[in-house]
Simulated scan of single mutants.
Amino acid sequence: MSDFTNLVKQRRSATKFIPDLEISAGELDEIFSLVKFAPSAFNLQHAR
């Protein structure tokens, strides 16, 4: 499992970003498919 997948599933937040880092469309698709595992405000789970 990738580091990002572990990060999302363990519900940690990212607070530091790397300037000038490019993310491919494929990577963005994978990220957006994983965000459903992250908690929302007040821990509301809208994606079911």
Rank of each mutant, 00 (worst) to 15 (best):
P39L: 09
S24C: 01
I23T: 11
E27I: 09
L34K: 01
M1L: 08
F37T: 05
A47V: 15
R11C: 04
H46M: 14
H46S: 13
V8D: 01
P39Y: 04
R12Q: 12
E30N: 07
L34M: 07
A41L: 01
D20C: 04
F37M: 00
L34V: 06
T15I: 02
P39N: 09
S13A: 05
K16Q: 03
R11Y: 02
Q10R: 08
F42S: 15
K9V: 12
L21Y: 08
N6E: 15
V35A: 06
S33N: 11
P19G: 03
L21E: 12
A14M: 14
I18T: 04
M1H: 02
V8I: 14
E27C: 01
G26P: 00
K9Y: 04
D20I: 07
A47L: 11
Q45Y: 13
F42I: 13
P39V: 08
R12Y: 00
I23S: 05
G26A: 09
D3C: 06
Q10K: 10
A38W: 04
Q45S: 13
A41Y: 01
L7C: 13
S13N: 10
D20T: 10
G26Q: 03
E22S: 06
S33R: 09
L7D: 08
R11F: 02
S13Y: 04
P19F: 06
P19C: 03
S2N: 10
L28M: 12
A25S: 12
K9D: 04
A14E: 10
A38E: 10
I23H: 03
Q10P: 00
F42G: 14
T15C: 11
D20M: 10
I31S: 05
E30Y: 08
V8H: 01
R48Y: 14
P19A: 08
F4W: 12
L7Y: 05
L28P: 01
I31G: 00
P39W: 12
A47T: 14
A25L: 12
V35G: 01
L44S: 10
V8L: 10
A14T: 13
S33T: 10
R12T: 05
T5Q: 15
E30Q: 09
K16D: 00
